[in-house]
């Protein structure tokens, strides 16, 4: 009997939870705020769904109800992607070690 592709996706999902579990425990507590902002940015990869939704309209009718929701989602996700990565970068640039010989 053939295995439903859903089971494969479920396997990826469960294994990723385990990866997430071990990777996040190794994050140093002083970087927990950047962790939150970067997880925020990467969860906005939901933009791929938004792009598919936005481009689903045909050329005569770019803006139908479904694609309008897609376009809105694109903007929301883009705010998060740019905002999330840039603010993380700004924060991480501030973490400095003690200067030697001070």
């Amino acid at each position: 009997m053939e295995i439903d592709p859903f089971i494969f996706r479920l396997s990826i999902f469960i294994l990723s939870i385990f990866i997430g579990y071990y990777v996040v425990w190794s994050v140093t507590p002083s970087l927990h705020t950047p962790l939150m902002s970067v997880t925020n940015a990467i969860s906005s990869v939901i933009i791929v769904g938004a792009i598919i939704a936005g481009l689903a309209g045909n050329s005569n009718n770019i803006f139908n109800t479904s694609s309008i929701f897609g376009f809105l989602a694109i903007s929301l996700a883009a705010i998060n992607i740019f905002g999330g990565f840039l603010v993380t970068q700004r924060m991480l640039a501030m973490y400095k070690k003690k200067k030697k010989g001070k």
Binding site: I12, F13, I19, G20
Partner: peptide, 19 residues
Amino acid sequence: GFTLENTALIITGALVGSS
């Protein structure tokens, strides 16, 4: 991610969820 059958989204969702 499951709806769209998109691996990147499933992996990310799981990572962020457990984080």
